[in-house]
Simulated scan of single mutants.
Amino acid sequence: MSNAEESEHSRLARNLNELLQELRVAQAGVQILFGFLLSITFTDKYATAPTLVRGTHLVTVLCAAAAVALLTAPAAWHRVLFRQGRREDVVAAGNTFLLAGLGFLAVAMTGTVLLISEVIVGGWVAVLIGVAALLVYGALWFAMPLLTRDTSSKLGDDITDV
């Protein structure tokens, strides 16, 4: 069935299913990362870690927590609004939540790479590795898709067609 033949209801159902599938992938990763980050605070070495490392860890945990909140929000929206015929609102908000959640996840992953690099090599090399991680996430998750996006459609025109 071509997109022209697809009904509005079918398109929204497909969009919602695709969104939920994408969220499942991101949620698993961020939840594992969040658990790992929480466990670090209960190690003996953490108690003696420098303030910079502890501060980086806190920011990383907060970004991971924000990613969890954003990546689980569409499921809550769906559950609350699904019987009210608000699927289009759920898909549009879910798309925004997913993109914002991926941004916070990229920062949390970068912070994790930076923390591990600081323990292993330290100093400017750790910072360089952290910057490289941020560039990789930014390029793969945001810059490259935006560069390959069909420029004939306006940015908001297809928000519900995720």
Rank of each mutant, 00 (worst) to 15 (best):
G55L: 08
Y137C: 10
A47K: 14
V125M: 08
L105I: 10
V125H: 03
L16K: 06
Y46H: 08
A126R: 02
P50E: 12
N17I: 12
F82Q: 13
L33M: 05
A47N: 09
A92D: 14
D161Q: 11
E6N: 00
E8S: 08
L99H: 09
N95F: 14
V25A: 07
R87Y: 06
I120E: 09
V125P: 00
L23R: 05
V61Y: 04
W77P: 04
S153F: 12
T51H: 11
V25R: 06
T96H: 14
A67G: 05
I40C: 08
G35D: 08
V53C: 06
I129P: 01
N3T: 11
A108K: 02
M109E: 09
E6C: 01
T56H: 10
E88A: 07
V91M: 03
F104N: 05
G103Q: 06
L115K: 09
E18R: 06
L37I: 04
C63I: 07
L115D: 03
L102T: 09
D158A: 13
V131G: 05
V162F: 15
S39R: 05
A26D: 11
G101Q: 00
V91T: 01
Q27N: 12
W124N: 15
V25F: 13
D161G: 03
M1N: 06
A139R: 11
G138S: 04
F42A: 13
R86S: 09
V113N: 01
H9K: 14
V131E: 10
A106S: 13
C63V: 09
V131T: 11
A126F: 04
S2C: 04
S117R: 06
A100R: 12
V131F: 08
L146K: 07
N95Q: 15
A100Q: 07
V131P: 04
F104Q: 06
N3L: 11
T72W: 13
L98I: 02
D158F: 07
R83D: 15
G111E: 06
W124C: 09
A133D: 04
N17C: 11
L12N: 00
G138N: 05
V61I: 09
D89A: 13
V59K: 07
T56N: 13
E22N: 10
D44I: 07
Q31L: 14
E18W: 03
V30G: 01
A65I: 12
A66D: 07
N15V: 00
G103T: 10
D161N: 12
R83Q: 15
G101M: 00
R14P: 00
L70H: 07
T151W: 15
V90H: 03
L58N: 07
V119A: 14
R11V: 00
G94K: 04
T151Q: 15
A108G: 05
R54W: 03
I129C: 01
R24V: 08
I40R: 11
L135D: 05
A75K: 03
S2G: 14
F142N: 01
A49Q: 10
V125I: 15
L19A: 00
L102V: 10
V91P: 00
V91Q: 02
V119P: 01
G103P: 09
N95Y: 14
V59P: 02
V68Q: 04
